[in-house]
Simulated assay, not measured.
Amino acid sequence: DFSEQQFTSLAEAFHFSKYTNRRISELSLGNRQKVVLMTGLLLRAPLFILDEPLVGLDVESIEVFYQKMGEYCEAGGTILFSSHLLDVVQ
């Protein structure tokens, strides 16, 4: 379970607040990617599997991604992701 406050906090961090009442089909690729990332973080599953997690994200959202993934791992979560970009993998 997650609280509305947790959702609001993530939406603000990813600059997604103005899109929360839209259908996923109406969103850009980057905003769809944010939905996937926020959903995974809110569910707090022990394993988060991502394929090309930075596709479509703007620079600010990429920074938020790295910060939130670090927090996720510090809380005991595991992340498995693939990317063809060496900088992302490192």
Rank of each mutant, 00 (worst) to 15 (best):
G40I: 12
F16A: 03
H84S: 05
Y72F: 15
F14V: 04
L86S: 06
F65T: 12
L86A: 13
E4Y: 02
G77N: 07
L43G: 13
L10D: 00
R23T: 07
C73S: 11
E71F: 06
V88Q: 14
K18H: 10
V55R: 11
S82G: 14
K34Y: 10
Y72K: 03
V55M: 04
F2I: 01
S61H: 07
G30F: 10
V36Y: 12
I24V: 15
R32I: 07
S9N: 08
G40D: 14
E71L: 12
Q5E: 12
D1M: 04
E12A: 09
I24K: 09
E71H: 10
T20C: 03
G70A: 14
G56M: 06
D87H: 08
F48A: 05
K34G: 08
D51I: 02
N31K: 04
L29P: 01
K68A: 08
D1G: 06
S82W: 03
E71W: 10
F2H: 07
T8V: 10
V88L: 07
A11V: 04
R23A: 12
F14Q: 04
P46L: 04
S61Y: 07
E74D: 15
E71N: 08
S25G: 07
E52M: 05
F16D: 00
F2K: 01
V55Y: 04
N31S: 03
I79A: 11
L29H: 03
L80R: 04
G56K: 04
F65V: 14
